[in-house]
Computed example of a mutant assay.
Amino acid sequence: MAKWLQSTEHLRFAVQGRVARIALNRPDRRNALSWEMLCELRAALLEADDLRAVSVIVLEGAGPDFCAGYDMKSAYARYAAEGSAAPDYRSGSGSFDDDAWKLERFQELLRTAFVLHKPVIAKVHGHCVAGGTDLALYCDMVIAADDARIGFPATRAMGSPPNHMWIYNVGPQWAKRLLLSGDVVSGADAARIGLVVASAPADRLEEEVMALAGRLASVEPELLATQKRIVNLALELAGAGTLARLAAEMDARAHLSRAKQQFDADVAAHGFKAAVQKRDAPFGEGVARPSW
């Protein structure tokens, strides 16, 4: 296990052999992504990319979950403050263009793992939903616990993934199957459909992730960068960068829907947790399973 050398409100950072370990460190909030956490995460990823002693980066989550999505509690509070206390600046709850602009700023932070020279492995356990999937799918490879829950339930009422790497991992039909329903898949089934590179029993996840990280770390970092960057350039040529920009605009468009307006009204009247329960009630267990 990693011996954590640095710890902040939002992150833990360590170097273990030639592997940098970065852990989201808000377990009380299920590692929900706030603006402050993402700024720290970008700095930590760039630090690991800069260190000559590091060849590979592992991104993980402290506590029972990898990441339960965007921190909507702080987001709603921030939008309210922006609209009243800072009228000279854009508000995420303002116009369509204001919303897209804010989403693009988050997108730049989340995309950091993708643009680094060194490979990043996401170690996923527990919940990896909504913004958690945006973060994990920008990593170069994902290894998940068999019982992890991966998906974007927010598509049922709140919007669309503002960072859209789904189609590049699972193709159009499974991307539609998951995003049109908001259903989740287990880590084991995510491996079957190609959403993650592998899965393992929860008690062996650390072993599996570090075995792959150690294998990659035996290769010279400049060669690792060569292979990563040519594959990512292929993704760019396939439209990944353009699609991400369009995804932010589609999310802003989805925020204008009647479903999102009703969801926001439910949040105001009953609180976020109750609004989510109402949103998800028609979907029962809400799990998609491959038939094979």
Rank of each mutant, 00 (worst) to 15 (best):
235 L>Q: 14
123 K>P: 02
190 A>H: 02
20 A>Q: 02
133 T>I: 10
123 K>Q: 10
44 A>Q: 04
95 S>D: 03
52 R>N: 14
39 C>F: 06
75 A>P: 05
40 E>K: 10
226 T>Y: 14
171 G>W: 05
134 D>W: 01
242 T>A: 15
202 A>D: 07
197 V>C: 14
43 A>S: 12
139 C>W: 01
154 A>Q: 04
112 T>F: 01
222 E>I: 06
97 D>S: 13
192 R>M: 04
135 L>P: 02
263 F>K: 03
272 F>H: 15
272 F>T: 08
97 D>G: 10
100 A>S: 13
253 R>Q: 11
45 L>F: 07
249 E>N: 13
179 L>A: 05
197 V>H: 12
50 D>H: 15
272 F>E: 13
134 D>P: 06
99 D>F: 14
77 A>Y: 06
107 Q>A: 14
4 W>Y: 11
210 M>E: 06
200 A>T: 00
71 D>N: 09
71 D>E: 10
174 W>I: 09
219 V>F: 04
168 Y>D: 03
42 R>M: 08
111 R>G: 04
192 R>Y: 04
199 S>R: 04
155 T>H: 13
73 K>I: 11
194 G>L: 04
222 E>L: 15
8 T>A: 05
72 M>Y: 13
257 S>I: 03
78 R>A: 13
241 G>N: 11
34 S>T: 12
159 G>L: 04
214 G>F: 05
170 V>F: 06
10 H>Y: 12
29 R>V: 03
142 V>R: 00
16 Q>Y: 07
31 N>Q: 06
48 A>G: 06
220 E>Q: 12
179 L>Q: 07
203 D>A: 11
14 A>G: 09
225 A>Q: 09
164 H>T: 07
271 G>C: 09
205 L>G: 03
219 V>Q: 04
213 A>C: 08
223 L>Q: 13
127 H>N: 13
37 M>D: 02
288 A>R: 05
114 F>M: 06
232 N>F: 11
162 P>C: 12
168 Y>M: 05
126 G>D: 01
96 F>C: 11
216 L>I: 03
204 R>Q: 14
55 S>V: 03
159 G>T: 08
91 S>K: 11
282 P>R: 09
188 A>C: 11
239 G>T: 03
178 L>G: 01
283 F>A: 08
108 E>T: 14
30 R>L: 08
241 G>A: 10
111 R>T: 01
239 G>N: 09
6 Q>E: 11
218 S>D: 14
69 G>H: 04
96 F>H: 15
148 A>H: 03
16 Q>W: 10
42 R>E: 09
71 D>L: 00
33 L>S: 02
85 A>E: 11
224 L>H: 08
285 E>P: 11
22 I>L: 10
292 W>R: 10
187 G>T: 00
17 G>E: 08
237 L>G: 12
245 R>A: 09
75 A>S: 09
268 A>M: 12
84 S>W: 10
9 E>P: 05
225 A>F: 07
57 I>M: 09
68 A>V: 05
172 P>W: 08
128 C>R: 00
112 T>P: 00
29 R>E: 10
135 L>N: 00
31 N>W: 02
48 A>H: 01
211 A>F: 13
101 W>N: 09
196 V>G: 04
12 R>D: 02
264 D>G: 15
160 S>R: 14
215 R>L: 12
133 T>H: 05
211 A>P: 08
76 Y>Q: 12
63 G>K: 09
137 L>E: 00
4 W>F: 12
28 D>A: 13
